[in-house]
Simulated scan of single mutants.
Amino acid sequence: MIHKPIDLAVLLETILKKILTTWLGALLLALTLLPGSSWAAGYTETKYPIVLVHGLFGFDNIGPVDYFYGISSSLRADGAKVYVTQVSAANSTEVRGEQLLTQVKQILAATGAAKVNLIGHSHGGPTIRYVASVRPDLVASVTSVGGVNKGSAVADVILGVAPPGSLSNTVLVSVTNGLSSVISFLSGGSGLSQDSLAAVKSLSTAGSLKFNQAHPEGVPTTACGEGAYTVRGVSYFSWSGAKPYTNVFDILDPALALTSLAFSGANNDGLVASCSSRLGRVIRDNYAINHLDEVNQTIGLVNLFETNPVTLYRQQANRLRNLGL
């Protein structure tokens, strides 16, 4: 029997065609499984403007890098009016809350809207809760993302290791105040007061308990339950991650893996325990993402095997839209 010589070029072309066909088929299947509405114009078009609020050491942008990386532009692309606010990078919840309230009033005056949808990350969670508590007439909804709603063990450790008045605490406060001032200056927020010790106290378990007594709206009354979905006309939501280390290329993930040790095995995103993040209607508290992934940082280096954070914000905007908010 005579065998014809193998034409490597033809063989390679055949293999490539099969691979391409397989990938195209998988892509088409994936597209058919996606909700059609997510591609429709107006998917994120909420009735009221969306206001994004950063967390501890947060910023609106440093050069080309946004704190909510790629999130505001994606929301705007399908109809949402989005405003990114700037409050103190480090200060008490009440101080940050008053700064935010001033900006909310400015946004309402500029847009003519009656209310806003507040979305806050990390310390931004309690910050937006403060505004909703003191001025519920100006707020349609509160969405806490990885929010420190019942305190953080990391803040407790900092206060325990460096109690107020000690030399180590003085050094710690000086360094963190300096860092927050630099971040605030680079992001166009110079002039805002910075007080990292006040921030850590606000984010501690004791500080959060005191804050919750004054502003209890949406806070679960059980250790790891849900809170009231609606209080004084304001709808409350929350979601968070529970995987501190998610991407080997993200240089900040190892730091979050270390801080996660403060939680003694409890589910956490590296800086906030899942149970502490819960507020109002809990969408999920166990996404396989970490505290920085929750705002699509560092520059989009997130878990490739979990729903992309940008998608989570888009879904929340659509959820608010469908509720008439």
Rank of each mutant, 00 (worst) to 15 (best):
G280S: 01
A257F: 13
G270L: 07
V272G: 07
Y287L: 13
R281E: 11
D269L: 03
Y287W: 12
L252W: 09
R278D: 02
L252V: 13
E306I: 02
A288L: 12
G280Y: 04
D285V: 12
A262N: 12
H291C: 07
L304A: 09
N268V: 08
L271H: 07
N286V: 08
A255G: 14
L304F: 13
E306W: 00
N296K: 00
Y287G: 06
S277Q: 06
D269A: 02
E306C: 02
E306Y: 09
R284S: 15
D269W: 00
S274A: 13
D285M: 10
S276A: 06
L304W: 10
I299H: 08
N290S: 07
S277T: 04
Q297Y: 04
D269V: 08
I283Q: 11
L279E: 06
N267V: 15
N286R: 05
L261M: 12
N296G: 14
A273V: 01
L279F: 04
N286D: 15
I289Y: 12
D285T: 05
D285H: 04
V282D: 00
T298L: 15
P254F: 04
F305P: 12
L261G: 07
D293M: 08
T298Y: 14
N267K: 15
D253G: 01
L252S: 13
S274I: 09
A273R: 04
F263W: 09
V295H: 01
D253F: 10
A266T: 11
G280K: 02
R284T: 15
L252R: 06
L261A: 13
I299L: 15
N286S: 11
A257I: 12
L301A: 05
L256K: 07
R281K: 15
L279M: 08
A257N: 14
G265F: 11
T298V: 12
I283N: 11
S260F: 03
L261K: 09
R281Y: 14
N268T: 07
G300F: 02
D293Q: 06
L271K: 07
S274Q: 10
R278A: 06
I299T: 14
A266M: 14
F305K: 09
L256A: 00
V302S: 05
S264P: 13
I289P: 08
L301K: 00
D293H: 02
V272Y: 03
G270H: 08
A288I: 08
H291K: 08
T298A: 12
R278K: 15
A255R: 09
Q297C: 06
N290K: 10
L256P: 08
Y287N: 11
S274W: 04
I283R: 13
S264Y: 15
